[in-house]
Design a protein around this nucleic acid. Structure first.
Length: 910
DNA sequence: CTCAAGTGCCTTTTT
DNA sequence: GGCACTTGAG
């Protein structure tokens, strides 16, 4: 008991120990929301004697679910934690449907249609009905209707316009298609579960308490679901904060907070008002920001931590330099704090996943390992999708979308035209695609007008793959390893390895490694989704109804669970851990509920935050508020004057308020030892010794390594331009002079280099170049070495000798060791994979290397650089080229960036 | 005619 | 990376 209440403040304690059946906790950022919720769970179990397996805990993300489980494990031990019914709304709903769905006509082995499936279905319907509406919009609208519990019949009645008639037709067709295919989409999981619980309350007869995290993000179905789950005892605890409502676009209803109080008038509303996460200055800024929303009720949020370093708002010439600056600042803070702060303490939070590219590139360049959260997932990689689609087709052959996607992958000479005809036929006859294919292969249909002989052979091969896999599925032993074995079998039978070799030659190693990783983790993914208790403790739940999986082999059940967990984006526990010491890149949405000592928010610019397509400005502001309040000690906002496309931008209106100005510094703190001590206090970490700090400070000053390198070897290779060039700009560390390096494709001095940096480029041959380099007492890699390196390093080689960032090939290492400036030329993979493989490095062989000597203090460029570093406005913006994904990939390869199940690191999306 | 491969456009946020 | 569209090979 003491252990549960220990370390809670009075408000938290009041909420945790409240005798009221219904408790609504209003918990602003950093006020101990999770702590309160987990303590409440513990309290209900130990004090009120509730059974763990009769308690439902709903979160919105897998991450939150896992975190919750960890915390409860810490309080009550694994046994108890594992017995809770804990997970995302969707996963809990799925579990109920698997168990009891048969009562409302849902087969227990239903599949889950993900967004791409839904889109494909709607697409085909729209085409088939020759409608004019936009499929994507239609899909979004269906999802919205479902989230608000509007069935298609209701919708048709409510909306009578011509456009709406079309839409209702699509809605109806869509529902029909899902039903026929034995599929449920994300909204169905919730909707049908609510349906089930409404009609068969006995399914939740045993539920003694329901706890909801991030309650402000519930939509109508989820709210209904909460009420229905709790209908037996009406014991509910919700935790939320209207200020952090950022899912309005997903039909979240903040007014559910009020609905809850209206429904249960005895609700005890508990307000938490003390923040334990962020420094006082960060909190000041965030509060000031959120108060711009005048419709919002005033609210107290008190800082409990010292002031800390002032939050920074940085104006930066371009998005590219912004990325470089972020990396530089990360490294500076880490150096200055002598290891008190590490890479794992850093998060870069983005409004949209697509903003990550430049940052990734800069991190990659600097050799900083990172991981990504949000955005596209591991499971969205094309090769993973492929394997999963095979598995889905095997598990449920009615899954038209999966079948259609794999039918000609690897190529079986079945073209798009054939597939389209087959699909059309399937739709017309209301039969699954698979049945049509079977008919053709078995010769039951005359096909000459539909399918060419070669396509016929292809179909036969395809059917063979699926059928033999299915046979295997029902006959294979059901030992622990068998799921992995089964997937391996499917991959072999389908010829996926060869297919990847053929189509993804340059990246085969990576792709194949991904497939193998999926195989390796399959069992883990099935087993480690938190709180599978509804399934595992079947004996206790339900005596009268037989196990839904009665007719299936263990292996089939495992496969079904694997696919469901994948669709609900579970990650294996192995992937979830093992990510310490990496910088985190995340969307702001995915960062909710998390915290880091250092937070960067790039591109706080009109059009991005608030997003140009956002409908609700206040929600965009709350988004920025959520992002800011993730920070414990350091908060950096930045605004590039030019976006990645080079067009001018303006500061976000959220920041232009006069009230915010005095709260923001324009450059990072100097980090004197007094400040660092305060930071140690904020982070509750041990402060480095005075001595260590002064050594670090001295080293920093002596090194005076604050030059930003604008060098950009790979990005500047741009065939579309007359002057593909690369520019380096760095102060030599040993003699204090600065120099510039450039490389021109034509071997001509480059006008851009000239005007941008305000100094004359000097052309040199290789020999002159080398001696010029020596004059800077820095060794340069020679052009010939470079060429050799490139040739000796086959494309894709970097991937083979992973893991870890130390996997730079030997040649690269020797180059790197020659001095700081060589890192510019020193990465063999840059020329190697930056260029198309069929023209091996001809640009390089033609290009002379040059050094431009830059007389100390004389040039505009130097003033620019200095001004930038001293954070005075630049006299002239420096434009650099935009980057491309391919090149980022090559950086990642060079670095051996960790693959992450939850990563963008490869952003293929199907 | 069919299919494969290439080009040029676009890309908010998530279960 | 997806999608619509074009081009070239068989």
């Amino acid at each position: 008991m003491d252990q549960i209440l220990d370390g809670l403040n009075s408000a938290q304690r009041a909420a945790v120990t409240s005798p009221a059946a219904v408790v609504q906790v209003l918990a602003p950022p950093g006020s101990g929301k999770t702590k309160t919720l987990t303590s409440r769970v513990a309290y209900l179990i130990t004090q009120n004697g509730l059974e763990p397996r009769n308690i439902v805990v709903c979160t919105f993300t897998i991450k939150a679910a896992r975190e919750m489980q960890e915390r409860i494990r810490g309080l009550l031990g694994s046994d108890t934690a594992n017995r809770l019914v804990l997970g995302t709304f969707h996963s809990i709903a799925r579990r109920f449907l698997v168990r009891y769905g048969s009562r409302i006509g849902i087969k227990s082995n239903f599949g889950i249609a993900d967004t791409s499936d839904s889109t494909a279905i709607v697409n085909r319907i729209v085409k088939r009905l020759h409608l004019t509406i936009e499929p994507k919009q239609a899909r979004a609208r269906i999802s919205k209707a479902k989230a608000q519990c509007v069935s298609c019949a209701e919708f048709a009645v409510k909306h009578q316009g011509a456009n709406m008639q079309e839409f209702s037709a699509v809605y109806a067709e869509y529902e029909d298609h899902l039903r026929v295919s034995n599929l449920l989409d994300y909204d169905d999981l919730l909707l049908r579960c609510a349906d089930l619980l409404r009609r068969f309350p006995e399914c939740v007869a045993r539920i003694e308490a329901v706890l909801i995290d991030e309650f402000q993000d519930t939509n109508t179905v989820q709210y209904d679901l909460m009420v229905l789950l709790a209908q037996q005892r009406n014991v509910v605890t919700s935790v939320g904060d209207p200020d952090q409502s950022i899912y309005g676009w997903r039909s979240a209803e903040v007014k559910n907070l009020q609905r809850m109080v209206d429904l249960w008038p005895e609700t005890h509303v508990a307000k938490l008002e003390e923040n334990y996460r962020s420094s006082a200055l960060i909190l000041n800024l965030a509060s000031e920001l959120i108060q711009q929303d005048t419709s919002r009720p005033a609210k107290a949020l008190e800082a409990t931590l010292p002031m800390g370093p002032q939050p920074v708002l940085r104006q930066i010439p371009s998005a590219k330099i912004e990325a470089l600056w972020i990396v530089g600042e990360v490294q500076r803070v880490i150096r200055r704090t002598c290891g008190m702060i590490g890479l794992g303490d850093v998060a870069i939070l983005l409004r949209s996943a697509s903003l990550s590219r430049l940052v990734e590139s800069a991190l990659g360049r600097a050799g900083v390992p990172y991981r990504m959260v949000g955005g596209n997932k591991f499971f969205d990689r094309i090769e993973i999708k492929l394997v999963l689609d095979y598995l889905r087709a095997i598990e449920n052959s009615n899954h038209n979308e999966a079948v259609a996607r794999i039918i000609n992958v690897p190529s079986r000479k079945i073209g798009d035209a054939t597939v389209a005809r087959l699909l059309e036929d399937a739709d017309a006859r209301r039969l699954p695609l698979w049945k049509i294919i079977l008919e053709i292969v078995r010769g039951e249909t005359k096909v000459t007008d539909k399918v060419s002989p070669q396509a016929q052979r292809g179909l036969e091969a395809f059917v063979n793959v699926i059928l033999s896999a299915r046979k295997r599925l029902t006959t294979m032993s059901s030992e622990k390893k068998s799921l992995a074995d089964f997937i391996t079998f499917v991959v072999q039978k389908a010829g996926i390895q060869d297919h990847l070799k053929r189509t993804k030659a340059e990246d085969f190693d990576n792709r194949w490694a991904n497939v193998q990783e999926l195989v390796a983790q399959a069992t883990d993914i099935v087993e480690t989704a938190p709180g599978e208790s509804l399934e595992t403790s079947t004996e206790v739940i339900d005596h009268e109804s037989p196990s839904p999986f009665q007719d299936e082999t263990v292996l089939e059940t495992a496969l079904t669970t694997l696919l469901a967990n994948v669709a609900l984006s579970a990650e294996s526990s192995a992937q979830a851990s093992d990510q310490k010491g990496l910088v985190t890149l995340s969307t702001i949405h995915a960062a909710k509920g998390l915290e880091w000592p250092i937070v960067f928010i790039p591109a706080v610019v009109e059009g991005i935050i608030p997003h140009s397509r956002a409908e609700d400005t206040d929600e965009e502001r709350r988004l920025l508020y959520v992002a800011m309040t993730r920070a414990k000690a350091f908060l950096y906002l930045s605004i590039p004057s030019r976006g990645s496309t080079g067009d001018a931008t303006s500061m976000s209106t959220f920041l232009s308020s006069k009230a915010l100005k005095p709260l923001l510094a324009n450059a990072g703190s100097q980090l004197g030892s007094r400040e660092i001590k305060e930071i140690a206090l904020i982070l509750r970490r041990e402060c480095p010794t005075e001595r260590a700090l002064s050594v670090a400070a001295a080293a920093e000053d002596a090194q005076d390594n604050r030059w930003l390198s604008h060098e950009d070897e790979s990005e500047s290779w741009n065939d579309d331009e007359d002057h593909a060039y690369a520019v380096g700009h760095r102060q030599s560390t040993s003699n204090g002079r600065s120099c510039m390096i450039y490389q021109s494709r034509q071997g001509l001095p480059d006008q851009n280099v000239d005007s941008q940096y305000g100094c004359k480029p000097t052309m040199m041959n290789q020999k002159e170049f080398t001696s010029a380099a020596a004059a800077f007492s820095t060794k340069f890699v020679s052009a010939s070495t470079l060429q050799q390196t490139s040739e000796n390093t086959p494309i894709g080689e970097g991937a083979r000798d992973r893991p870890s960032k130390k996997n730079k090939s030997a040649s690269s290492q020797s180059v790197q060791s020659q001095g700081s400036i060589t890192s510019f030329f020193g990465k063999p993979t840059v020329p190697t994979s930056g260029l198309a493989s069929d023209r091996p490095h001809k640009l390089l062989s033609r290009a002379p290397l040059g050094v431009i000597q830059n007389p100390p203090r004389a040039t505009e460029s130097k003033r620019d650089a200095e001004a930038f570093i001293e954070s005075k406005p630049l006299s002239k913006p420096i434009t650099l080229h935009t980057t491309s994904m391919q090149r980022i990939e090559s950086h990642r390869k060079t670095l051996g960036v960790k693959r992450s199940f939850n990563g963008w690191e490869s952003r293929q999306h199907r």
